[in-house]
Design a protein around this nucleic acid. Structure first.
Length: 596
RNA sequence: GGCCCCGUAGUUCAAUGGAUAGAACGGAAGUUUCCUAAACUUUAAAUAUAGGUUCGAUUCCUAUCGGGGCUACCA
């Protein structure tokens, strides 16, 4: 890689010029800004202490030595404290010719030994997936792709919250008011049917609380004593005691939910290698709690509840097991972590979970550390920001959510309307057209969500957020389709270049060079995205690339160019660009349409 | 109250401590006898406030103001 060679040469040049060694980590080399002539820039300021000369003078001296030392350099300029180096066109051209058809470009050919377990999605079986889950799923799926491309063997796991007091709530509501309604009889998707009863519970529960408060109870007391919540607790107790009827209903309702989830996952285009159920891990969690008690790391109270005291570390006391012996979220997560470690011995266990659970994961890690678990330090909570609506946070208890299925369906129909309006694919058969609308609609949705830094909260306005023009998924997909059309024509006219032919002697236009530079950056981009666990790096990159290509395409002829060398160069550039756009989108979980 | 995160054009997002803070949407003005106009070109418009560290701060530190989250025997 050129940066490395440049750094070494700079080291040598500095020693030659100032007879001193210099800490290379202080030297920054960056790609030259677009508006300025040059390809790589060395920031000179850190050198001034040892050069004892003006920034301009220092830059000039260093530039001259480098020019002599590195044959690929053909010139430089100095602006203030910045040394801008110019590489010869041959350098860019040979890179282009050598890589434009490499399928494996930007994909690591070395696989690491140790696995990464990546958890995402993690739905509750009592409510359908909503926009927040969409962000979660897209992030997880994309990260799995990005890590794989960087040579990490990834195990995609989904942890289903299939048990707990919240599930009992929808079970209770169904027992009371459900009759024998099924997804089939109601025509509702399974997860939607469950969600309906969860909301029903919350509504009635709230009413009971209000009634009790009217009788003089505090809100807390009312929340604890309302008949519905007490009944739900009883169901949880029965469930943990393996009561037959309870288990039967639980299985039936969860089955409905899974069917619904699977449909949504399929439409969204995400999948998993392994599904864990909390009902299978909570007992292991309880064992760990017992172990903690024996080791004296945890303490039990008189009422039988088990706690960990983290006040010495600036946190609070945290409950790990209820007084009635039932387990809580944390108990389950302890077991899940253990099981995952036993199954895969991963080098990293990444949890894609919203930032509202930062505290929970902080505690989880500390508990496991105190238990002396070797995998505790390998736990990494990839904490992503909330998706907010214009009116604020989504509240599934109140049914104030953007439903995942509805949203996607809306995207598809909007994509269809847009396409028809533009008169793009009127000759497409119906099935193919529907496929295209899904590709474009999902492209818009996925790009919109993934282009934002995962750590940050983001706003989603159902009426305005999704666009198909400008900095959007469809814009990038369009660029891909456009190139594809161009290349098809080139093939038809037998104009495609031969791989072993170098377009020699041609001068690169600015627009061409800009694209080549971006293409060359692709491997670093995928690495950065993996290091930072951040798909937005890829999203912003591929937008830049598409934008640069459109700029080029608008102003410079490709097939119409009469000079065969230039035509060949531009075709290579186009083929390479389409390939890298396709790969980048793939990393984001976005499909690239051949036509649109 | 305590702990954590975030304040960048009208709006939604960018910017490894480096050059004149980038885009997109929206606003204004243009480009189609020419490889897909879901495109391209031009234009107006922003770092919450006050200090500090630094040759250099949107970025690091402190305070203030504003927004969000957590602080459940919910998940």
């Amino acid at each position: 890689m050129f940066e490395k060679r440049l750094l070494e040469a700079a080291q040598k040049a500095i020693r030659e010029l100032y007879s001193q060694d210099f800490d290379l980590s202080k030297l920054t080399i960056e790609r030259t800004k677009k508006e300025i002539e040059g390809d790589y820039t060395i920031v000179i300021f850190p050198l001034l202490k040892i050069s004892r000369k003006s920034p301009e003078q220092t830059a000039k001296e260093l530039g001259e030595v480098l020019l002599k030392e590195l044959p690929v350099l053909c010139g430089f300029n100095v602006i203030k404290g910045f040394l801008n180096l110019i590489l010869s066109d041959e350098y860019w051209l040979s890179f282009l010719a050598g890589n434009y058809q490499r399928q494996e470009y930007g994909i690591s050919q070395v696989m690491r030994e140790e696995k990464v377990v990546l958890e995402y999605s993690s739905p509750n079986t009592n409510k359908p997936l909503h926009l927040g889950h969409i962000r979660n799923n897209l992030l997880g799926y994309s990260l799995a792709n990005i890590l794989s491309a960087n040579g990490y063997p990834v195990v995609k796991v989904n942890l289903v919250n299939d048990r707990g007091i919240h599930i009992c709530k929808s079970m209770l509501a169904y027992m009371k008011w459900g009759g024998d309604e099924t997804p089939k009889s109601s025509g509702l998707k399974g997860d939607k049917l469950i969600g309906k009863y969860y909301v029903l519970f919350e509504t009635h529960y709230k009413n009971e609380i209000r009634d009790l408060m009217d009788k003089g109870l505090t809100e807390d007391e009312a929340g604890q004593q309302a008949p519905l919540i007490m009944e739900a607790r009883e169901i949880l107790r029965k469930w943990e005691a393996h009561d037959h009827e309870t288990i039967y209903l639980w299985k039936q309702m969860n089955g409905w939910a899974y069917q619904g989830f699977n449909e949504t996952y399929k439409t969204l285009g995400v999948d998993f290698d392994r599904i864990y159920y909390e009902s299978e891990t909570y007992l292991l969690g309880k064992e760990l709690v017992l172990e903690g008690l024996e080791k004296g790391v945890l303490n039990s109270r008189e009422d039988g509840s088990v706690w960990i005291d983290l006040s010495a570390e600036g946190l609070d006391e945290k409950l790990l097991q209820r007084s009635d012996g039932t387990s809580v979220y944390m108990t389950q997560d302890l077991g899940t972590a253990q099981l995952r470690y036993d199954d895969y011995h991963p080098s990293q266990m990444i949890y894609v979970v919203g930032n509202e659970q930062n505290y929970h994961f902080d505690v989880l890690k500390r508990v496991l550390l105190k238990l002396g678990k070797p995998y505790a330090p390998r736990i990494f909570h990839l904490s992503y920001g909330m998706v907010e609506l214009p009116e604020g946070k989504m509240k599934s208890r109140e049914g104030k959510v953007v439903d995942a299925d509805d949203l996607m369906e809306e995207m598809f129909s909007t994509a269809g309307e847009m396409t028809m309006e533009l008169g793009k694919v009127s000759e497409f058969p119906g099935k193919e057209a529907r496929k295209l609308f899904e590709t474009i609609g999902l492209g818009a949705l996925k790009y919109f969500i993934l282009k934002v830094d995962p750590k940050k909260n983001m706003l989603f306005d159902p009426k305005e957020s999704i666009d198909f023009n400008g900095n959007t998924g469809p814009f990038i997909q369009y660029t891909y389709a456009r190139i594809n059309s161009l290349v098809s024509k080139a093939i038809a006219q037998q104009l495609m270049p031969h791989q072993d032919v170098l377009p020699a002697g041609s001068r690169l236009m600015l627009q061409e060079k800009e694209i080549i530079k971006l293409l060359m950056a692709y491997p670093q981009i995928t690495k950065q995205a993996a290091d930072e666990l951040n798909p937005a790096v890829v999203a912003n990159y591929v937008y830049d690339l598409a934008k640069s290509y459109n700029h080029f395409y608008q102003e410079i002829p490709v097939l119409k160019e009469e000079n065969a060398d230039l035509r060949q160069l531009r075709l290579m550039l186009s083929v390479f660009t389409a390939s890298v756009i396709g790969k980048s989108l793939k990393l984001l979980g976005i499909d690239s349409p051949e036509r649109m």
